[in-house]
């Protein structure tokens, strides 16, 4: 039996990309880890374990478990300290943590809950009780995630909303600057939207916005982030995409929208103007500057006659126009 501080990490899941929730056990006792693994087999979960707290934190950041079982008394960094670290990291702050402990004093329980533990189970644990507690923690986490995601979605169009866009833009711009990966941002604005609203009524306007939303969701790739930016304006964030490829995606959006027949006004087509800023290599542009550049091209598309895509590649400020 190892008493040292050597650590090991085991990932038992054959397929971690499966949708089964992942249980991460952090415990220095191999006996307890093996026991948990076997006793949770009947639950529809994947199982991973770490034999030290710091290893566990690393694994939690990487695997995003639905629940963490955390031993309190471990050599080196103890469970309370690990819990504190998990709750300080934005990656793991929402993950429910069930403390497993041989300590059962009220003081230890209070400390654990104060630090943000979701639950507390004393060892030796009753397996039926542990199972339902794990199940309850996973249920809470799943609901929380669903709500959090819903709060990021625009009700009318089904696209990501503005606050999600703002957050993702910052993330993607920094990733682009760090890894020198390509990045493109498109701003899209429905042409003469006010005219649709005034002539055919607000429900018709809403139908156009919802239609643009579903068209965007259909055309863009999984890695793209289509958002409703506000009003009749949309934003499309395209990580790992060169300006040329972004222009091709947007050109398809433009063409397909033009061909849509609208039930409320079959005689009236709807078009869209699109401005893109993109960079194939790393740039040091701030997130707001990305929006400004894309906006500038959007205005150019509008003043150039609407229903067109205008894009610039950031390292070479040569402009290319694609007329509709």
């Amino acid at each position: 039996m190892s008493q040292g501080t050597s650590t090991h990490v085991r990932i038992d899941a054959a397929n971690l990309e499966s949708t089964r929730p992942l249980v991460l056990a952090i415990d220095d006792s191999p006996d307890v880890v093996r026991l948990l693994q076997v006793r949770l087999k009947s639950e529809a979960v994947e199982f991973a374990s770490a034999s030290s707290g710091l290893e566990g934190i690393e694994l939690a950041r990487r695997l995003r478990p639905a629940v963490i079982l955390l031993d309190i008394e471990m050599p080196g960094t103890d469970g309370f300290e690990i819990l504190r670290m998990l709750k300080e990291s934005p990656d793991t702050v929402q993950t429910p943590v069930i403390m497993l402990s041989g300590l059962s004093s009220a003081h230890d329980k209070v400390t654990a809950f104060d630090l943000g533990a979701a639950d507390y189970v004393t060892k030796p644990f009753d397996i039926a009780e542990l199972r339902v507690r794990v199940r309850a923690a996973i249920r809470t986490f799943t609901l929380f995630q669903m709500l959090a995601q819903r709060a990021q979605i625009d009700g009318l169009t089904g696209l990501w909303n503005r606050s999600h866009f703002d957050r993702r833009l910052v993330e993607e711009v920094s990733r682009h600057a760090r890894h020198a990966s390509p990045l493109a941002l498109a701003m899209l604005d429905v042409d003469r939207f006010k005219h649709v609203n005034d002539s055919f009524g607000h429900p018709a306007g809403d139908a156009v916005l919802a239609g643009v939303g579903s068209l965007l969701r259909k055309i863009v790739r999984d890695s793209d982030v289509p958002c409703r930016y506000g009003g009749e304006e949309f934003a499309l964030l395209m990580p790992d995409t060169t300006p040329e490829d972004a222009a091709a995606v947007c050109e398809r959006v433009r063409q397909m929208l033009e061909q849509v027949t609208w039930p409320r006004h079959p005689e009236h087509n709807v078009t869209i103007s699109i401005g893109i800023a993109g960079a194939a290599k790393a740039t040091q542009l701030a997130p707001e500057a990305w929006v400004e550049r894309a906006d500038r091209n959007l205005y150019a598309a509008k003043s150039g006659g609407r229903n067109r895509v205008v894009w610039t590649s950031i390292e070479s400020p040569l402009q290319l126009n694609r007329a509709g």
Binding site: S29, D31, E73, P75, K123, F125
Partner: peptide, 26 residues
């Protein structure tokens, strides 16, 4: 070190169906 062994045995033995062992380790 002895205390660590006792602690681990206490935590695990009950789960393996030996409450008496857990208790003695405790």
């Amino acid at each position: 070190d002895l205390r660590t062994v006792a602690h681990q045995l206490k935590g695990a033995a009950g789960g393996y169906g030996y409450p008496m062992l857990s208790q003695a380790a405790g």
